[in-house]
Write a protein that binds this DNA or RNA. Structure first.
Length: 495
RNA sequence: CGAGGUGUAGCACAGUCCGGUUAGUGUACCUGCUUUGGGAGCAGGGGGCCGCAGGUUCGAAUCCUGCCACCUCGACCA
């Protein structure tokens, strides 16, 4: 029995470990729809916490929420040339609006008479529908800036999917802003990258590199794509968020102009930015271990779980009363606490279950503790246990412990990243590094051409994740072409 | 779309090569008793169009043909 619920270990098979964990920690499961997952309550609770935190950060930076249609008329997609190139291959298309019983009684079929005049595309992203709407909303410089975010689902018909990391349908937020000047728009794109970076590091406890994408890796239709890149435990990079400076491309495509103070007509400047349920994947692959999920306290649906231990009914009453008292104290202090008083499960089972689910702190209290005025406190991240006095300030103790866990898992991830970041000067060194079990982040000189970038990828599978912001400038030569280079860029194998 | 693999109870699998009792094991589920400080023990019980459609045969989970679905690894991508 004890073996029954063990995860595949990371060393055995990393992708399988990931899949096992997602299922066994009750985060999500594959649905009966190809490439689409069901996010289960526990997984969704974590996503909701991400949403709440981000939503507040967006509002604090002046944004408001709105909602645009799921469907986009096909013709909209073709108005921006690069944009359609980027998404055309992965769009789900609605062609009919009615079903009917099959004439031969074999079931339900699409009614051929219900064909749409113009097909509707299920949004892969909302730039086009939003910019066609903005045209009506923007007339004057007084209407700017327009700072809007939407929480939505989008569909990209991916050939190969993995839960949270790449699913055909996924949940995300997309911000779409309009500005009077290029400077303002660039500032906005950079501001939101900052928001994402802070969110990743402070809330998710994932250290990230902030950078700019190369031309080849840029969002379809953008002039610049900013990104945050995290390093997962298997040494592969994961793009955790992007923010795009769109220039006037969409304003021109959808004819969105405004009157300046001196009554000149100008196209507006745009940004868009988004993070998705992929962050769940980043969270899992950054912190979790062979025992299961490890959650940062900031996101844990239950920050503290209390497991009562008892044998007889009189013990049960006393132990539960004390547990409830502790739970109330913690709750009052603003701690998300779960008293696991489920009578049908034994303590050992609960210990294992809550470890699998990544609850940061577990308190166990039994008759022995009750008699001695103690509690047993276990930390999920370090897998340590200690018996401590149960005092009136248990809430302060737990609050401090939660803060410490949040800091420590971030530090641990950061140390891992630093230990797995290398700098190389030759192509041979580069290739050798990529052959290692944990290839990690690799800094190397690059000549700045797409051609070189593509050849390196074709030969090694490594891509340029970004050109880090504030990158140190130094003279060097491209590892591939030998041409001069002024800075190192960040390479990695990526998800 | 290329290469592999898998479809049998909620889940994980055995059985298929070599056709033949009532299709089996673990786990989960239900009932009872004993248990409860690291995924409890015993006893009893329920649950199966063996992926789908044809075919061969006295007889098919097993052999043949066709189809479908899913998974892993590539190419494409957040």
């Amino acid at each position: 029995m004890a073996k029954g619920n063990k995860l595949t270990t990371r060393a055995e098979n990393y992708p399988e470990w990931y899949n096992d964990l997602v299922k066994k920690a009750d985060l999500a499961e594959n649905s009966e729809v190809r490439g689409c997952m069901v996010i289960k309550p526990y997984g969704y609770a974590i996503w909701e916490r991400m949403q709440q935190t981000l939503d507040q950060m967006f509002k604090d930076t002046g944004h408001v929420n709105a909602y645009f249609p799921l469907f986009i008329p096909k013709s909209f997609l073709s108005k921006e040339a690069d944009h359609v190139d980027g998404f055309a291959k992965e769009c789900a298309v609605v062609t009919h609006h009615r079903l009917m019983n099959a004439p031969d009684g074999s079931g339900v079929v699409v009614d051929p008479d219900a064909k749409l005049e113009e097909e509707l595309v299920v949004r892969p992203t909302s730039e086009t529908i939003i910019w066609s709407t903005y045209r009506n909303w923007i007339q004057s410089y007084r209407d700017l800036p327009l700072l809007i975010n939407q929480w939505a689902n989008v569909v990209r018909w991916e050939l190969r999917t993995r839960m949270f990391l790449r699913t055909a349908e996924f949940l995300w937020q997309e911000g779409h802003t309009a500005h009077a000047t290029q400077e303002e728009a660039v500032e906005e794109a950079e501001r939101m990258l900052g928001v994402y970076g802070d969110f990743a590091e402070e809330t998710l406890a994932i250290p990230v590199i902030r950078g700019v994408k190369t031309e080849r890796e840029r969002f379809a239709g953008a002039l610049d794509t900013y990104c945050i890149e995290g390093l997962m435990q298997d040494g592969k990079a994961l793009q955790a968020g992007t923010s795009h400076f769109l220039g006037q491309n969409f304003a021109k495509a959808f004819d969105v102009k405004y009157a300046t103070k001196d009554n000149k007509e100008e196209y507006v400047w745009a940004t868009s930015w988004g993070v998705s349920t992929r962050l769940m994947g980043a969270l899992i692959m950054t912190h979790s271990d062979d025992e299961g999920l490890v959650l940062p306290p900031s996101l844990a649906p239950h920050q503290v779980v209390i497991v009562p231990i008892y044998r007889k009914d009189d013990e049960k009453d006393k132990v539960l009363a004390k547990c409830a008292e502790i739970a109330q104290t913690l709750k009052t202090a603003g701690i998300r606490v779960k008293l696991d008083d489920d009578d049908t499960k034994k303590p050992g089972w609960k210990f294992a279950e809550w470890e699998l689910k990544g609850v940061p702190i577990r308190i166990a209290l039994g008759p022995r503790d009750l008699a001695n005025g103690k509690i047993e406190v276990a930390r999920r991240d370090l897998k340590t246990k200690e018996v401590m006095d149960l005092t009136d300030t248990v809430d302060e103790t737990m609050t401090a412990l939660l803060a410490d866990i949040q800091t420590q898992i971030y530090q641990k991830a950061k140390t891992f990243r630093e230990e797995n970041t290398t700098s190389v000067d030759t192509y041979d060194e580069f290739k050798a590094q990529l052959e290692k079990p944990i290839p990690g982040f690799i800094y190397a000189h690059w000549d700045g051409t797409t051609e070189t970038e593509e050849k390196i990828q074709a030969e090694t599978k490594a891509t340029i994740r970004c050109i880090p912001i504030g990158n140190e400038q130094e003279e060097g030569v491209c590892i591939y072409s030998g041409k001069p280079s002024k800075q190192r860029v960040l390479f990695a194998k990526a998800y």
